[in-house]
């Protein structure tokens, strides 16, 4: 938790301390980092390796299907972004990485992500596979018991969207609920690369 607080503070400092390329509206990772690679299983049971997606922009979001209403807001925003981009979005892939591997079985992930867009994919794996990915991307994930609630437990999690560019570099970071117009504007620039 301390780590996360520090990260948040530094992000805020980082954001306020500088002004970047005027054409990009999200948080630019400058210089871009090689995106930490991983292999997970998509909702169709096929392996999904990030480094094999070069040529596409990959938008990663960490969430879960029982997420009350923060995840649906973000995924609906990303679906709106894709609709807005139209044909230009053909080289963009939106992927939800589960933070609740216990409950998010493939069929549920598939139905969930496809509620938002038929091209979105849900990625899952076992805890041992997922935890290093959370760590690599600085994702805060914490299971919390809800003894009084029928949900039994929930997952507190951070809500950034990570943009991996066509060269496989971690290029942008978007805070939760960044206006879709900002993301569309950035993608119009980055999809042309």
């Amino acid at each position: 938790m301390l780590r996360f607080i520090i990260l948040t503070i530094l992000l805020v400092v980082g954001l306020s301390a500088c002004s970047g390329p005027p054409e990009l509206k999200g948080t630019v990772i400058d210089p871009p980092l090689p995106a930490p690679d991983f292999t997970l299983t998509d909702h169709n049971g096929q392996p999904f390796t990030l480094s094999e997606q070069k040529g596409n922009i990959v938008m990663l979001y960490f969430g879960f299907t029982l997420c009350p209403d923060i995840c649906p807001i973000e995924l609906a925003n990303l679906a709106a972004v894709k609709r807005e981009l139209g044909a230009a979005a053909e080289t963009m892939q939106v992927a939800l990485i589960t933070v609740d591997p216990e409950r998010d079985l493939p069929e549920r992930l598939e139905l969930y992500v496809q509620t938002f867009d038929p091209d979105f994919i849900g990625l899952h794996g076992d805890t041992e596979t997922l935890e290093p990915i959370y760590r690599d991307y600085g994702v805060f994930v914490q299971r919390r018991e809800l003894p009084e609630s029928a949900m039994e437990y929930t997952i507190d999690h951070s809500g950034f969207v990570y943009l991996i560019d066509k060269a496989g570099r971690w290029r942008m970071l978007y805070a939760h609920n960044t206006p879709t117009a900002d993301i569309v504007s950035d993608l119009r620039v980055l999809l042309r690369e």
Partner: peptide
């Protein structure tokens, strides 16, 4: 990790995203 993320955060130069309420 903290160092990496700190470096990242400090290197991340951009207009602050205008986070809108839900």
């Amino acid at each position: 990790i903290i160092t990496l993320l700190a470096a990242l955060a400090l290197a991340a130069c951009a207009e602050a995203p205008t986070t809108a309420p839900a």
